[in-house]
Structure formats: structure tokens, C-alpha cells
Computed example of a mutant assay.
Amino acid sequence: MTQKEAMTRQDDRTRRLTEALRDAGVRVTRQRAALLSVLARADDHPEAVELHRRAESELPGISLSTVYRTLSALESQGVIHRHQFEGAPARFEHAESAHHDHMIDVDSGEVIEFASERIEKLQAEIARELGYDIVHHRLELYVRRKGTGSDG
């Protein structure tokens, strides 16, 4: 992706996030605008505290409670997803991305996104065999790199 394409994507994300806040009846203050800018640039799965740290470096004085309230409003508008991975604070990501699943490295906390057509087909097949259609699903694999820690 070129730098120009990345900037355009960030601008589009910022616009969507801003519109979602306004649609939720939330005023877009300078603090919230700084947070939206940080969130638009995030291509990882940051926790609220990490988003606060990033926004604070752009606009000192932003409160953590503003971050939490803003994230809650954005989540209710469906423009971000909250992930509550086992044993860790909630993490957030853009809702615009195509469906994917997550692997969470239990040693480092790193979140790795992946997509597998084989897994998707198998899940649909199992649901169908049991008389169901999948409405929504989320797959989280907790992993450890081979050769580190206890391998089982």
C-alpha cells in the first residue's frame, strides 16, 4: 500500500468514526477527535489504555474515561469490534475488515489475524449436520510458538 493510499484509508476511517459518534449523539470534542485519529491509524488490536497513551501523546489531557465512553459509543454503532481475549483487557479493531479469526500468543500477548476457507467450510458443514445455520461466530486460538515454554 502506498503512503497516499494509507492516508486516504485513514481519512476514510476517521470520517466513518466521526459520523458514527455524531449518529450516536456524541459531541466530537478535540479530545475525541484526537482519539479518533489514533484509532483510524491503528492496524493492531490496542487496549483502551494503549489508545489513551497514543492519544495523550497527540493531545495531552485526554481522560481515560473519555476513551472508554468513546469506544463504547463506537462499538454500539458497529464501527469497531471489542475483543475480550482470555485473561486480558478488551482490545479493539475496526469493523471494516473482512471476516477473520484470531490466534493469541499466550506468551507475548500478540494477536495474529488469519482467515481459513477450510475452517469456514467445516464450521458451516458441522452446523448444517446438526440442523443449524451459522449466524455469527468468532474463533480464537490460544497458541505458543513451538520450542518455547511447555509444549504440552
Results as ranks from 00 to 15, higher is better:
residue 145 R to I: 08
residue 13 R to Y: 00
residue 121 K to A: 14
residue 113 E to M: 07
residue 128 R to V: 07
residue 67 V to N: 02
residue 79 V to C: 04
residue 107 D to R: 14
residue 109 G to H: 11
residue 87 G to C: 10
residue 4 K to A: 15
residue 108 S to E: 08
residue 68 Y to R: 14
residue 106 V to F: 00
residue 65 S to Y: 10
residue 147 G to Y: 07
residue 40 A to H: 00
residue 91 R to N: 02
residue 48 A to W: 03
residue 143 V to Y: 03
residue 47 E to W: 04
residue 71 L to Q: 02
residue 33 A to R: 11
residue 36 L to P: 00
residue 149 G to D: 08
residue 14 T to P: 00
residue 9 R to E: 12
residue 139 L to C: 03
residue 77 Q to K: 06
residue 20 A to F: 05
residue 83 H to S: 00
residue 11 D to E: 15
residue 16 R to A: 14
residue 95 A to V: 05
residue 131 G to T: 03
residue 123 Q to P: 01
residue 30 R to A: 15
residue 99 H to T: 09
residue 93 E to R: 12
residue 34 A to G: 04
residue 66 T to V: 10
residue 95 A to R: 05
residue 22 R to E: 07
residue 45 H to R: 08
residue 121 K to D: 11
residue 75 E to K: 13
residue 2 T to M: 04
residue 148 T to G: 01
residue 68 Y to F: 12
residue 98 A to H: 08
residue 28 V to M: 04
residue 66 T to I: 01
residue 67 V to A: 00
residue 41 R to C: 11
residue 82 R to E: 10
residue 25 G to S: 13
residue 15 R to C: 05
residue 36 L to V: 07
residue 114 F to P: 01
residue 28 V to T: 09
residue 52 H to T: 04
residue 131 G to A: 05
residue 140 E to A: 12
residue 5 E to K: 04
residue 47 E to G: 09
residue 150 S to H: 14
residue 73 A to Q: 04
residue 8 T to M: 13
residue 92 F to T: 00
residue 35 L to I: 10
residue 60 P to K: 12
residue 144 R to C: 07
residue 71 L to C: 01
residue 25 G to M: 08
residue 75 E to I: 02
residue 142 Y to P: 03
residue 98 A to F: 11
residue 117 E to W: 11
residue 108 S to N: 07
residue 122 L to K: 08
residue 13 R to Q: 09
residue 135 V to E: 14
residue 105 D to R: 04
